[in-house]
């Protein structure tokens, strides 16, 4: 294993840790989307590092483009859902969304 690959691996693990920690402690719905974005950055970096390590950068590039497309669609729909929740409840924090609790 090369030093560069080890650095990539450490960065990927740190990005995942930041994203998961942020997902666990946050209650703001938009912030949850930001945390998912950070996790996606980790996945993108993982794909690029894997392409670099195996020498198949072109395939990795094609996969990264797919990831970005899915990321954008996920974000567009999730933002719409968050805005819908905000319109219905006047609240963007998960603690305040109680309509389905019965």
């Amino acid at each position: 294993m090369s030093l560069l690959l080890a650095l990539f691996l450490i960065s990927i693990v740190l990005l995942f840790a930041i994203g998961i920690y942020s997902l666990l402690v946050t209650t703001n719905l938009i912030r949850i989307l930001v945390s998912i974005e950070i996790l996606t950055k980790g996945v993108t970096l993982l794909m690029i590092a894997a392409g670099y390590a195996t020498g198949k950068m072109i395939e990795a590039e094609a996969y990264v483009i797919t990831i970005i497309v899915i990321e954008v669609v996920l974000l567009a729909i999730a933002t719409g859902i968050v805005l819908g929740v905000y319109r219905d409840n006047g609240e963007i924090y998960t603690r305040g969304i109680k309509n389905l609790k019965g």
């Binding site: 974005e37 993108t44 690029i48 392409g51 670099y52 950068m57 990795a60 590039e61 990264v64 483009i65 970005i68 990321e71 954008v72 974000l75």
Partner: peptide
């Protein structure tokens, strides 16, 4: 830098811009 310019352009325009 790692030799993925097309993915880099996508990331810059879509993720850094649109999102």
């Amino acid at each position: 830098i790692l030799g993925a310019p097309l993915a880099a352009v996508f990331e810059l325009s879509v993720c850094a811009g649109m999102i």
